[in-house]
Design a protein around this nucleic acid. Sequence first.
DNA 1: CTGAAAGCGCTTACAG
DNA 2: CTGAAAGCGCTTACAG
Lengths: 340, 340
Amino acid sequence: MTVTIKDVAKRAGVSPSTVSRVISNHPRISEETSLRVRKVMDEIGYHPNMMAKSLVSRTTSTIAVILPRPADELFQNLFFSEVIRGIVTQSTRSGYDLLMATGTTEREELETVTRLVRGRRVDGILLLYSRANDPVIAMLKEADFPFAIIGRNEDYPDILTIDNDNVQASYDATRHLISQGHERIGFVSGPPNLIVSRDRLAGYTKAVREARLPVRSDWIVEGEFLQESGYRAMSLLMGLPERPTALVVVDDVVTFGILCGLVELGYSVPKDIALVSFNNIVFSELATPPISSIDIGIYQLGYTASQELIRFIQHEHPSHALRHIIPHRLVVRESSLRRS
Amino acid sequence: MTVTIKDVAKRAGVSPSTVSRVISNHPRISEETSLRVRKVMDEIGYHPNMMAKSLVSRTTSTIAVILPRPADELFQNLFFSEVIRGIVTQSTRSGYDLLMATGTTEREELETVTRLVRGRRVDGILLLYSRANDPVIAMLKEADFPFAIIGRNEDYPDILTIDNDNVQASYDATRHLISQGHERIGFVSGPPNLIVSRDRLAGYTKAVREARLPVRSDWIVEGEFLQESGYRAMSLLMGLPERPTALVVVDDVVTFGILCGLVELGYSVPKDIALVSFNNIVFSELATPPISSIDIGIYQLGYTASQELIRFIQHEHPSHALRHIIPHRLVVRESSLRRS
DNA sequence: CTGAAAGCGCTTACAG
DNA sequence: CTGAAAGCGCTTACAG
């Protein structure tokens, strides 16, 4: 039924070895033979069996991206499609297929990745999350298998990472509020165990300190990457006897929650409270008022991650850097402008 | 280096055939042997080579999902992550891996799918879009390869499809506006070549006709699934000498554009114009005012599509239905409520 | 420049 | 219940 290399060989009057060499553009094959073989391949509709090729070559031309478990980091949904689009675009361009995998529990996740790695199912792994003490990362290191992570990881200094400079980004956001004349600036953070939360908090603190403004612990609220979290943070902050006049918010979705709450309570943005946020998702622009946000280059993050992972796979010993920083950019909109 | 079935066999004192049978739970293997072999597998860390297995079994335990090209149907981004999550959850649960592929041009798209199909890279294909006269579908039919499409396709009656009843959904949305006392209802549509646009228009028309209200062509505007489109539609409609008092809008993102435009021009929703939309994306709830929307069960769409495709793959001749309808549900919010 | 042969790691009739 | 053998479709030294 299926057309194999043998069928091509027979029809072209050569050996299977020769056909194989034609396919892989072996240099020592005559132009003439090559042309004849290619013609036959077209005629009888030959397509190489990827599985057979993989088995003998020990490569798969496939990378796997591991999604965060639904339970955690649901916020990823927001940039999920953008990162994936970046990854799939670049991997396709490099001739690699993309496998998506996930697990519902930590154990399942580890099992899945182990199966892919040990079963030689893929050539590299891309982790779409960054947790501390991750057994998956430990396993990948142990197996000496090519992988990259989007985000930063403090446990290992020598792994391939693609990330933003979140400290600097948050510093920039805070500086912007200061330049608008704010002196009482709060910070609404995400889960404290995530590195991204910590980095953004650090940048905020740095900017506030530098400007000799107060860093007050009651103006720093932790939560999840959910709108409900924003709502709660807002209630807390607005209930204080001394309130901030501006907030740096760790994620656009959280800002949405804050905004809704403020509107409900009859406050006005940016007059009563100014907001700057992160990620610059499409809807930041569509909010009322439009939200100022740090664009972190989500697509770029995915594109670069795929590129660097594949580069790593192809040159056994990577000569280039392990840590890659995607530039960010503050997009100023109405939510942070001081009305004069 | 890698542990193979032979290593296990040697260590367990059996033949490779026996090990293979243990792995596949062959019934005629003694409990004792099975246990011994499994123990050895654990001890030396055996993981089956998926490629070798695929080569001989002619199955891959993998399905591919084909993304719409960036150029078209960008709106898919919005439900993209939800559909994918549904698909990946279900396929993982069924023991299938998920491959993602796409192409930048129609030709590239066809080539990619052909390579996957003819190269026996996957066991089934899931198309995430529904176009008329699609050469990819023609090829899949011709090759008699298992595939399913999310959406409806009129070219072939006998293919596996997973869709909403968009006519009914739109009918329901329109009825809701009528029940709120509206008699002048317009429709903002998507690209006319997409079946989803046509179906939703049909449902709207049906409801309006049935209520003996006017169906006016100047109240029906076509566009893209983009906010800019909504903005433009709004300008057009509000510039009419006789304006509608309510709109059914084909997609939430378009509604965002409409809403922004209305706010800019000083109109109020729902007082001046009521809105009902489709998809019920997270941000519908967060808009000011919150947008009434038809929840089309995006996750469910993906979950069911994966389930039916895999079922199809596993039973050569499917005894069950080919067309699957995911139920929808109107979520009423402020944007469509008539203030009394 | 090309071919015959061995082998990648598994499965599966066939035979016992 | 288990083993020896053939084979899935390819690649790649080795030899010429």
